[in-house]
Simulated assay, not measured.
Amino acid sequence: MRSDVTFNSEELRELLNLWYMNIKLKKVQAAEKLKAEVSEQLAKGEANDDVVKLALLIHSRHHILCKNHAEAEKLISQVEGFSPYLKEEHLYYLHLFKGMYLYSTKDYYNAIEEYGQVESYLGYIHDEIEKAEFFDLFASALYYLDYTNRSAIYAEKAIYIYQLYPAYEKKLTRAKILIALNYIDMGEFDLAEDYLHSALQDRNAITDDMVKISIYHNLGLLYERKRLYGAATRYLKKVLPHPDFENYLSTLYMLTSISFEEENFELAMEYYQLGMDHLNQKDDRDYYWKFKILYARYIDKGNYIKVLTEAVKYFKSKNRIFETQIYADELATLYTQEKDFERANHFYRLALGNQNNIVMFHSRR
């Protein structure tokens, strides 16, 4: 851009929109170039205050893309200082980007609080795809923290919009997978199966191997939950040749669990060792403890309660509601069988406390 060209506020707003689109598309080089152009225009002092605030917010989103979290936090705090003077559009992006910043720094609960604030400003956003992407983002965050009912609601909202725009089929497929995962957790297996097989027919599932592998993995999860182990194994084995798949540890964990359940201990230990080898390359403490629990349950039974207790302590410290509830409940049952009612009550309270957290969250706006 020529340095002697000056944009008025409306023209600069169009430039900001282009910058934001490139950020969302993760086109880092193009976004960097547009950032420089915006900075050059802002330095001329011709933009009105509303455009300047919007530019600061989009700049924070740029920093999130580039994982410059400290810089993103500074800009977000700067805009928060203008709170009494922010318009609804600014407040929408402020809560959205702050939620993204918090989520990217693993402050998941506060991220969800911010996303919850976004919805009241959606009426001021006229881009339907922007709304769908927010619903998608919120649904993903809720699913990660095991708030499955609410996650399914937002995933369905995203699907409703995406399916109206053929250019967004990739995001539609992803949203179908997400809602299917929620339905699996809710025990609505037929609905989950319908969405996964629908996703498998999408064009990008046919042309993109990793999308197809993801669907195979989740079909394996579905059938494992239904205890249809033959069908589960058939789909999970399709994932094995792809160790770069992002949920590969989960695939190995399910194959290990199924093999133990079917008392095929030799095969189970082969999958277990593959899991341990993969953990040496990609540290994941969640799956470290899940594999440890499996091993203790079937092989090292004398240490099962000890391992389970340590695992519950870990999952509780990481706010993993689902795992804490499941494993605390199992410990409570074991202590009840041993007539150690004091410890049993402690773990029952812990399990019920996590159930109550889910109910309370679902009852909130």
Rank of each mutant, 00 (worst) to 15 (best):
V5H: 09
E11C: 12
R13Y: 15
E14P: 03
L18K: 14
W19L: 09
L25G: 00
K26W: 10
A31S: 13
E40T: 13
A47N: 14
L57Y: 15
L57C: 04
I58Y: 13
H62G: 05
C66W: 14
V79W: 05
E80S: 02
G81R: 08
E88W: 12
H90A: 00
H95V: 00
L102Q: 09
S104D: 05
K106D: 07
Y109L: 07
E128P: 07
I129C: 03
K131V: 02
F138R: 03
A152L: 09
K157G: 02
Y160A: 10
Y162N: 11
L164D: 15
A167Q: 10
E169C: 04
R174N: 05
I177A: 02
I179D: 02
Y195T: 01
L200W: 13
N204C: 09
A205K: 04
E224M: 03
E224F: 03
A231P: 06
A231S: 06
K238S: 01
Y253I: 00
S257H: 09
F260G: 09
E263R: 10
A268G: 15
Y272S: 08
H278D: 10
Y288A: 01
A296N: 14
R297T: 15
A311V: 06
S317V: 11
S317K: 15
T336V: 00
Q337A: 11
F341E: 11
R364K: 12
